[in-house]
């Protein structure tokens, strides 16, 4: 993906027909995300229960914490017991685990991934790096606090957090979802401009459309 790919251009179809494409409009949605206020009723509570009991994690190992996700999903810890499953595509995932440090290059991808997830969506941040930079507080290439770029629901301390701590994080997230407190997606839509400003401040090469889910 480079900047030129986003420009309006003319292509020739296999039939020899000439037509103009505008990638921004054709490939990307151009609407700002909208806040979908949940109606607080018994159905929503029931839904919240279902959401909390079926958490699909996006399989994106953004940092070194990804190493502890394999034990999590394998016999020793078997997170499937808790209704946690793996999803390879952001469209179907509900929980984005930022496993540790995020370089700005990954942050850009993470933002795209996060925006492609559907409301409600949750972010769990692992390790010191997402809280305040961790080991890489002085690195020129990693962000220091994640909540400036994505709404974070749960932080898990550790470097790396053990799978047990990760599970505890999910359990905490479940209670948040059940009580209707995990509204990160709406927060993101609400303070969209603020998040975008922060994101653009650190991503040097912003060659992606602003609204792209």
């Amino acid at each position: 993906m480079s900047l030129e790919d986003l420009y309006r251009k003319t292509t020739i179809s296999p039939d020899g027909e000439e037509f103009e494409i505008n990638p921004i409009e054709d490939y990307f949605c151009t609407d700002k995300p909208e806040e979908v206020k949940p109606v607080q009723n018994i159905l929503e509570k029931f839904y919240n229960w279902a959401r909390s009991e079926s958490i699909w994690i996006l399989g994106f190992g953004t940092g070194c914490g990804a190493i502890e996700m394999r034990p999590l999903m394998t016999p020793r810890f078997d997170a499937y017991r808790y209704g946690i499953q793996w999803r390879p595509t952001p469209r179907q995932a509900n929980l984005l685990i930022i496993s540790g440090y995020l370089s700005t290059k990954t942050l850009k991808r993470v933002i795209r991934v996060y925006e492609q997830m559907q409301n409600p969506k949750y972010v769990m941040a692992l390790g010191s790096c997402t809280i305040n930079g961790g080991m890489y507080f002085d690195s020129y290439n990693t962000i220091k606090r994640l909540d400036y770029y994505l709404p974070v629901d749960v932080y898990v301390a550790g470097c790396m957090p053990r799978p047990e701590a990760l599970l505890a994080g999910v359990v905490k997230l479940k209670t948040l979802i059940k009580t209707g407190m995990a509204e990160g997606a709406n927060d993101y839509a609400n303070r969209f401009d603020w998040y975008k400003t922060n994101q653009k401040a650190v991503i040097l090469n912003w060659d992606m459309p602003d609204y792209n889910w």
């Binding site: 930079g133 690195s139 020129y140 962000i143 220091k144 606090r145 401040a201």
Partner: peptide, 11 residues
């Protein structure tokens, strides 16, 4: 660079 460029919590 990191101190100027990125948001940080109070160190």
């Amino acid at each position: 660079f990191a101190a100027n460029f990125y948001h940080q919590r109070n160190s």
